[in-house]
Design a protein around this nucleic acid. Structure first.
Lengths: 239, 239
DNA sequence: CGACTGGTTGATCTCCATCAATCCCTGTGG
DNA sequence: CCACAGGGATTGATGGAGATCAACCAGTCG
């Protein structure tokens, strides 16, 4: 099951408070913004859709995927979240989570309750701007993803995903040497609207062309950004 | 060119202030939240990508599409916006518009500058919650659109779009009798990641099956929601 | 009246889904 | 320690949904 820890401890001993959401806000020993940290083992669920919202989450380590189950039980992939990224904004207005969140590997998240956040933010205009900007950036990111993936070939989709994902990884605090970096090809396929077979074929093709290199444990090692970015834009002209 | 009108007039004589964003906030004759209204003729641009942000916009009448031009000049469709809907949140964090906004027909929008909005909102916690909820709802809407359209057939895509669009139309203040309701099939195709030919074929098929009826001027008249919604979920089982 | 934009319809081709078999790796239990 | 099971990845063969190319029509605007 999920393991929980009091925030006061957690924030106090946090390895990377400067990366925290509004560190200035969060780092107040008397009134910690983060109410608790949650430790998830690979595969565990952080929250289910339609559950009452408990707050938004900041990823401290690991990786989370969100997905949505329709009435027929069919699963649709939402997004992937990496350390330093915020999760759950889209559920705030409905007061219930609109999707499921599952740990892709052992993961640590910090929970921030919205009432507490809003209360804190209302006292300081600068923090209000910070919150609005964070939400705006989330929106821009989702819209940009839509732009990027619509009307593209399978090759382009995989290339775009690899570049975006690895750039986000490099921005994050993740210890690249010790973790299995990529989601499963099945999850990638689901996210991109492809099949696992197509993703597999594309990945092996990329390896043969030297665009991507992996370690034996399927960890992503190196990308040829220049060539991949050429692939991303040159739609059908590429043969 | 764009025609502008002082807000004090506009808000004062607005036909539908109760539909306005935070009407309680907006309707203050001394300090109007809406700084001006802009009248756009069909085809006119409300803003270009990379322009300095002037605020967010509330649609009063008409319709807007957003699109994005990449470095090669290829155009990718963003979204459609209908009366009562808010436009521009995703640009707030970057201080420049991240996309282009163009009027699909004669359109009237109200401009709300962010600094003014934030200032007003900071004085009243309830308004702060309202703003956060509006942004959260925008995010949820974009994510839901992603869920809805990924991994679906052309038939499903068009069905989903028609149902969603007409439901949003019915929520809006639009005068259904006097306007051409649908975007062009080219824009629909671009939004859905299809070609115009495929959309055309699907639409005529829907008409033959009696799922959709049009007037002679291509205005959408009537949808068979029940049957369309069956189409939306029954992926490949439908023949 | 042309010119142009948007819509319709048909023929062909291609990319990717589908189905199937096999392999590899990890974890589990006798 | 080995056998086995199960999930993920790989590779091949086949078929189909939708893109592409092309021709044509209808309404609209200068």
């Amino acid at each position: 099951m999920k393991t929980k820890r009091q925030a006061s401890d957690s924030c106090h001993y946090c390895q990377a408070p400067q990366q925290c959401f509004g560190a200035e806000i969060a780092l107040d020993d008397k009134n910690p913004l983060v109410q608790e940290t949650v430790l998830l083992k690979k595969g565990e669920i952080l929250y289910h859709q339609q559950e009452k919202i408990q707050g938004i989450y900041l990823l401290k380590s690991g990786a989370i995927k969100t997905y949505w189950l329709n009435e027929q039980g069919r699963q649709t992939m939402g997004s992937f979240y990496l350390p330093g990224e915020l999760l759950g904004f889209s559920s705030v207005s409905s007061h219930t989570y609109v999707e499921n969140a599952q740990a892709l590997r052992d993961t640590e998240v910090c929970r921030i309750a919205m009432p507490l956040l809003l209360n804190r933010v209302s006292k300081e205009p600068a923090y209000q701007t910070l919150l609005v900007n964070l939400m705006s950036a989330s929106l821009a990111r989702v819209e940009k993803a839509r732009y990027a993936y619509i009307d593209t070939s399978a090759t382009q989709k995989v290339a775009i995903f690899l570049v975006d994902y690895s750039q986000r990884l490099s921005k994050s605090l993740i210890d690249a040497a010790s973790v299995n970096l990529l989601p499963t090809q099945q999850d990638m396929a689901s996210y991109l609207g492809l099949t696992a077979e197509t993703v597999s074929r594309t990945m092996t093709q990329f390896q043969r062309q030297g665009l991507v290199q992996f370690s034996q444990a399927k960890q992503m090692l190196k990308l040829d950004y220049a060539k991949l970015q050429t692939l991303m834009v040159n739609a059908c002209s590429e043969r």
